[in-house]
Design a binder for these strands. Structure first.
Lengths: 222, 222
DNA sequence: TCCTATTTGTGACCTTGTCACAGATTGGAT
DNA sequence: ATCCAATCTGTGACAAGGTCACAAATAGGA
């Protein structure tokens, strides 16, 4: 599998700190896996998925309350590495998250037990893992700052701006429900606020899509 | 300073992975520092304080919004090590926090530049730092879960229960203002809720103190 | 064309935060 | 002992956003 190896080498900065034996052991326990849109690939109950590299698609990492409320912490895209899917490997991670595939997604999954075993013996692997966790910590802090400190209209503006920047073009193909989920807000509030934006001539709405028609006005809300 | 060395050895799990030279370098750049109650020992603007060990007292780590709103992330007590005070050392930490001394506090402070220099060369030190950051990540997730998912009365009950468990005894010497700060809520809401608790016979209030008179009822709210 | 699922719109109500005070308590200073 | 000023606590009116219970509009398939 030369493709798998070339991906792992690029994503795992510890790759050349591994012995040949360790490298081979990882390669032997890494599989390409497909998750269809909407499927769950990690939750509190599910056994540890392992370390994941996104080949194609998108993952959403979120917190889930007992009553079923969700807060999206961050999203992962092509080439991102997900370590919280292997939280069982890191004893210092004492919380749980859920991870869903947001669209049809191809992953490389490194077996958790194997990764764990190597991380225990090789500090570079251990260190890599905790560094990655710290990166996510930063993402979560950003999400937290938004949720706790910014008004909903401002956050919505930021969200829309981020989405069009990310995808190119000015049309966001998402239902209000999805936007609400990503932002950690209530769908009704998203609807109301989007209609307000539409009245201001900032966006044009139609079922399932939001088109930004005045980027300048949008940025003024930022 | 044999005292400083004995504290550092106990708190820095990488201590016996250091060369004699590195150990000495750290010892030469560690100082005992006193921060009076209410003083700030780290903020976005202040230059990097360094790695801190709490000898005696208490630190509060919080996020600060542009408008001055605060959210307490976690608190640190005797023997805790604070790594976010040295966030400049960890490139993967891309957010900023504020840290105040909550009461008169004695610290050991390891110079940031020296620590950074050693962390760059010694993976064990680097790894230790990111592990510690991940511990705090877990604390923050707990705070986040509380703030976003739990009703205020439940959170207040948890807060009171935690405080009496921590201090022993049943009296909490804190103003409503302080409670609000720790919980990330509004003082008026704390006042209202405490009065409600008092009506239910759960607590007895007087200026500056909250006494829990019925722990069973309190736990029923948990 | 019709049927059904999904998406969007709307109003009433709840919780919590915000603001603007007023009243109570406390610890000095005289 | 008395008064003063600072701090702490209490309260009401209002705003933002979440929750609930629907109704209306819109797509896709059969």
């Amino acid at each position: 599998m030369p493709e798998i190896e070339s991906i792992l080498r690029r994503r795992f900065s510890f790759w050349d700190r591994l012995s040949d034996r360790e490298r081979q052991r990882i390669l032997d326990h890494t599989a390409a896996v497909f998750f269809p849109k909407g499927s769950n690939l990690h939750s509190a109950e599910s056994k540890c998925a392992g370390v994941v590299v996104v080949k194609r698609g998108e993952l959403r990492v979120y917190m889930l309350s007992e009553e079923g409320k969700e807060i999206t912490l961050y999203r992962l895209y092509e080439n991102d590495v997900c370590i919280l899917s292997a939280s069982c490997v890191l004893q210092h991670v004492t919380f749980d998250v859920n991870i869903d595939a947001e669209c049809d997604t191809e992953l490389l999954v490194v077996n958790a037990a194997v990764f764990s075993e190597i991380a225990e013996k090789n500090v570079y692997v251990e260190c890599f893992s905790y560094k990655l966790a710290t990166d996510r910590f930063s993402d979560v802090m950003w999400a937290m700052q938004q949720i706790l400190f910014m008004s909903f209209d401002r956050r919505l503006a930021i969200f829309l701006a981020d989405e069009i920047a990310k995808n190119g073009g000015d049309t966001i193909r998402m239902t209000h429900e999805q936007v609400a989920k990503y932002m950690g807000g209530a769908r009704e509030v998203v609807t109301r606020m989007l209609n307000y934006f539409a009245n201001e001539g900032i966006v044009a709405l139609s079922r399932g899509t939001i088109r930004v028609v005045d980027k300048k006005k949008l940025k003024r809300l930022l």
